[in-house]
Design a protein around this nucleic acid. Structure first.
Length: 187
DNA sequence: CAGTGGATGCTCT
DNA sequence: GAGCATCCACTGT
């Protein structure tokens, strides 16, 4: 499957299908193990109230990066999706580090690989993504999005850290991954 | 391990 | 002026 083929679907198809893909920025990154879908007519989405200066990228072409500042300190990155007539996106929440691990360690000031990209703010710090990357085209360098050899096994859970529409099960996690933002609960 | 609170800046009402 | 699509350090078990 190519990136263009992936992006042909709506956000609820793209989000689970994106799990298992490898995301690299300047040769640094890893396997996507956790994402969340933010849909049209979704009270939790930045695009819910219509287009503004901040969310303009979500109303642009699919396959671009929507980056915004979170809680004044962190950056969060989304893949813009095509929803019929409306803006939608997939929040990148966690990667399993595979490429440039030492560069990510240096950027994060950490040695534990499981914590390098385990959360949306951590992921952007490890990949050095900032507001300067808002609107960037993911199909062009320095970005690279490559599909997995075989599709990932994906679990579906409620989204994290939101107060509106929190019950919608639009968080997609690779089953059994130890690199997601929340450790698997003890059995 | 679980729970709490502070840092910090920008957007929208 | 409120409210965040968060993270980390710190507390008490």
């Amino acid at each position: 499957m190519t990136l263009a083929e992936l992006l042909r679907g709506g956000v609820h198809e793209v989000a689970p299908a994106l799990v298992g893909w490898t995301l690299l920025v300047d040769g640094v990154g890893g396997r996507i193990v956790e994402v969340e879908a933010y849909a049209q007519d979704d009270p939790a989405s930045h695009a819910f109230g219509g287009e503004t200066v901040r969310n303009a990228t979500m109303f642009g072409p699919p396959g671009h990066l929507y980056v915004y500042r979170s809680y004044g300190l962190h950056w969060c990155a989304n893949v813009v999706c095509e929803q019929p007539g409306r803006a939608a996106g997939v929040l990148l929440r966690a990667l399993e580090p595979t490429h440039g691990v030492d560069r990510m360690r240096a950027r994060r000031g950490l040695t534990d690989v499981r914590l390098l990209c385990a959360g949306p703010g951590r992921l952007t710090q490890a990949l050095a993504l900032t507001g300067a990357d808002d609107g960037a085209d993911l199909s062009r360098p320095p970005f690279r999005l490559a599909p997995p050899a075989t599709p990932a096994v994906v679990e579906c859970t409620p989204r994290i850290g939101i107060s509106r529409a929190a019950e919608r099960p639009w968080r997609y996690v690779e089953a059994g991954s130890s690199f997601s933002s929340r450790r698997r609960r003890a059995a």
